[in-house]
Simulated assay, not measured.
Amino acid sequence: MTTREIHLELLLGKPVLDSTGKAVGRIEEVRTEQQGEEWIVKEYLIGYVAVLERLSAWTIGLGILHLLGAHKIHGGHTVPWDKLDLTDPDKPRLRCSLDALKSLDKQPQDTE
């Protein structure tokens, strides 16, 4: 297996395209796991809800949205590392349908 390094800071904010070339969201966060001395990418978070996670603002952000009348927050997905094609890091593409991804939908009561 060939390994390759990509600077994560250059991926943040990049629009992710589906198989038809439609933008489905931007890479807002990357979840990793340490294995020995290396850090391995487990998944990427894309969409509006992922911004709150990146800023560690779940409790405050969702609380404010709840006060403004939001009952369910939509707008993000979890992309497993192997479902994102980074052959061209400037144009990341999904290797699956958007429907196949886990949604990052959050309920305001999830913050309690």
Rank of each mutant, 00 (worst) to 15 (best):
M1N: 12
T3W: 10
R4M: 11
I6H: 05
H7V: 13
L8H: 08
L8S: 12
E9S: 14
L10N: 14
L11C: 06
L12Y: 09
L12A: 03
L12C: 04
G13E: 08
G13R: 06
K14H: 12
K14F: 04
K14T: 09
K14A: 12
P15K: 11
P15C: 06
P15D: 11
V16R: 09
D18K: 05
D18V: 04
S19A: 15
G21E: 09
G21D: 04
K22G: 02
K22A: 13
K22F: 01
G25I: 07
I27M: 08
I27K: 07
E28H: 05
E28W: 02
E29Q: 13
E29T: 10
T32L: 09
Q35R: 15
G36V: 06
E37T: 12
E37H: 11
E37L: 14
W39A: 13
W39C: 02
I40P: 01
I40V: 15
V41M: 03
K42F: 01
K42T: 13
Y44L: 07
L45S: 00
L45E: 07
G47F: 02
G47P: 03
Y48I: 08
V49P: 02
V49T: 15
V49M: 11
A50R: 05
V51N: 02
V51I: 14
V51G: 03
L52K: 02
L52E: 03
R54M: 09
L55I: 00
L55F: 09
S56A: 11
A57Q: 13
W58E: 11
T59S: 12
I60F: 13
G61S: 05
G61I: 07
L62M: 15
G63A: 06
G63V: 05
G63D: 06
I64M: 07
L65S: 05
L65K: 10
L65D: 01
H66F: 11
H66L: 04
L67E: 12
L67T: 10
G69P: 04
G69T: 04
G69H: 03
A70D: 00
H71V: 12
K72Q: 12
K72V: 14
K72F: 09
H74P: 01
H74E: 15
G75Y: 04
H77A: 12
H77T: 00
H77E: 02
T78Q: 11
V79I: 15
V79W: 05
V79S: 05
P80F: 07
W81R: 13
D82H: 15
D82W: 11
K83T: 00
K83D: 11
L84E: 10
L86F: 09
T87S: 15
D88I: 03
D88T: 10
D88V: 09
P89I: 07
P89N: 10
D90K: 14
P92L: 03
R93S: 10
R93T: 10
R93N: 04
R93C: 12
L94D: 01
R95Y: 00
C96W: 01
S97Y: 00
L98W: 01
L98C: 01
D99T: 03
D99Q: 12
A100H: 02
A100Y: 01
A100I: 01
L101F: 01
L101G: 01
L101V: 07
K102P: 00
S103E: 06
S103G: 04
D105N: 13
Q107S: 14
Q107H: 15
P108C: 06
P108Y: 07
P108G: 05
P108A: 08
Q109H: 14
Q109M: 11
D110A: 14
E112H: 11
